[in-house]
Design a protein around this nucleic acid. Structure first.
Lengths: 197, 197, 197, 197
DNA sequence: GATGAATGAGCTTTCATTCAT
DNA sequence: AATGAATGAAAGCTCATTCAT
């Protein structure tokens, strides 16, 4: 008969904030906006997150963990690196379709507002679960001989920059086809760029 | 004997705004900040740009034209597509080194603040000089038989997403090496992904 | 044990704004002026009225209702139209004496700032309680045979224009006598102009 | 072959300012607005009128003289007071039709912005040509035995308040008929109110 | 925990007026 | 006389955050 647990409240806030921040932008979205969407008072919001910036940082970590976990599941499968590449692309695009606020938040809020994430999220602190899992993917690929041994960041930039670019174009409604349509060619492009030559 | 022409003033504002916006973000940068950096009064700023948003839009167009022109010069050269790929990467990274505010503005302000650019920069209106030139690059490459004929956006997303991703990592001081260092491998990666197979 | 209710706060603002607007004019009076007079912060003012224009419109409606109610009480009395005429003049002049800000606001702010009241107070929307009651006065007078049946607006213009003119002269300190002094002759003049001939 | 004399320039400014002030209001109209309408530079405007307030005051005087002169012509005629009353009403309404900016300026700018006219136009200083001529009308009427001898201001308030009220209603597009239509009944109402009983 | 009125610094923008040319 | 770029004070309004209840 418990009403709403503290944890549930927090999840509700995260969910509402994610949507608002990704749709309207970090600065346009106000705390009253978020509180209203959650159905709680402004004052009470501050019992859960001590500031707007703190909320923003918790959101990145939430997404990073979610993404990291998704990639981990792919990494753990016993499939070729080429297949894994496809699976990661597929997972990312599905996510952009089904929970666009997560990817959009990543691209439009986290990557663009240094001022906000500067203190406490330096470097890759707040995205390490996700980055770590991408490292695993590359290391496994190199170890298995599928991928050629290059600088991690160059490979990472290719992979994530490419996917981010596509989702961005999709969000701008510039892409003539649904994201789904590009999965095959894009994972091919990526694999071709990274594979052993 | 005129001291400063109206055109020069405008250029000064563009230059100052570009730096401030890219460093501190669009919302953190105030008009007084810009005016002070230019050495003019707040009121006078509005004789040159009728609003903060208008300024933001003129900045994207300025950059887009600059980038488009740079790529055009490469496209016009009589070299292989592989070499052109390298030249574009090189130009982009040099720009990120020498005039980082331009690339950063593109990545952090333009791509992330829909609210600001929505009205008047829909789709690719404000970046068409740049996008058009990238289209030329791909078309020429396909015609010459060097690149395989794929969807433009998939190729565009790879190229620009990759470069953007790298510059982003660079800006975050995450890259262990200077951008220069990656030119070769990255243009190789891109070319491998796009070339005829 | 609550100190001041939300309704009281609103009334306080209305009262302060009425005085300031009528004394200094709409454009000269600032929101900080009003907030200070009420003893509240500028920000909090906006919790009660979402804009200066909205406040201005609510003020007219407030006055119109107050005036309408006052006239209704006179209309409801069982007295001759001549006496009613006197009572309305008397009420109006008393009001100009005791709560001059109400009449002055009407004359100097509402009637003169189209830009402000244009949107939302078109025609007589915001003063209908008052105008309606004046219509009742005329209709009753005509029905009872005391007033001759003429165009409403001509009669209304006479009545209110006359009173407004006098209060205006009074406000300008041009009148040699107190308003009180004119009640008799003015209501006579009005009645003479309107009565059946 | 003289281009434009100083006097003409001044007249042009007066004409433009009158229109703009009466249409948009004193505070909404800017000096650049006026300069543009005249076709002159902002700086040069100040060679003709040393401030916005000074301009406003000169405008009232201009109108007051114009109105006074028109009434003087009627006063000088050898006709009954009743006919004069009609002629004044007629002249006023014609003016409201043909040069509405003059009457509107009077009603909406002069009568409502004390702050502006306070210093230099105290009492009736700036409208004395007009008021004086109305005084003549009353005195002549009383002397000839047509009007009963009452306080000037009461009579003045009736006359001008009434006319002002009608023009106001007309300006608000509330009157069902053109002003022309009311001339007869209104001058009758006024004369009935003022005549010897 | 929950509420929402209250704060106040700070933002964008405007505009009368000046002054070097 | 004429120009219009320049000034800067001030306005309306917003919003993260606090705190009495």
């Amino acid at each position: 008969m418990a009403r709403i647990t503290k944890e549930e409240r927090k999840t509700n806030i995260i969910s509402a904030a994610l949507k608002l921040f990704s749709e309207k932008g970090f600065y346009i979205t106000t705390i009253p906006d978020i509180a209203e969407k959650v159905g709680m008072s402004v004052g009470n919001f501050y019992n859960y997150f001590t500031s707007k910036d703190i909320l923003a940082k918790e959101l990145v970590m939430y997404i990073s963990e979610y993404l990291g976990e998704s990639i981990r599941k792919i990494n753990d499968q016993d499939i070729t690196t080429e297949k894994k590449t496809y699976e990661i692309v597929s997972m990312y695009f599905n996510m952009a379709d089904e929970r666009p606020e997560m990817i959009e938040y990543f691209l439009r809020v986290y990557l663009s507002n240094r001022e906000v994430f500067g203190d406490g999220c330096e470097g890759m602190i707040c995205v390490s679960p996700f980055v770590t899992e991408m490292m695993m993917f590359f290391n496994d690929g190199v170890e298995s001989g599928d991928l050629h041994d290059q600088d991690f960041f160059s490979a990472f930039g290719l992979f994530m920059g490419y996917l981010g670019g596509m989702v961005f174009l999709f969000g701008e409604k510039i892409l003539p086809e649904p994201l789904e349509w590009y999965k095959e060619s894009i994972s091919q492009n990526i694999y071709n760029a990274l594979k052993t030559r």
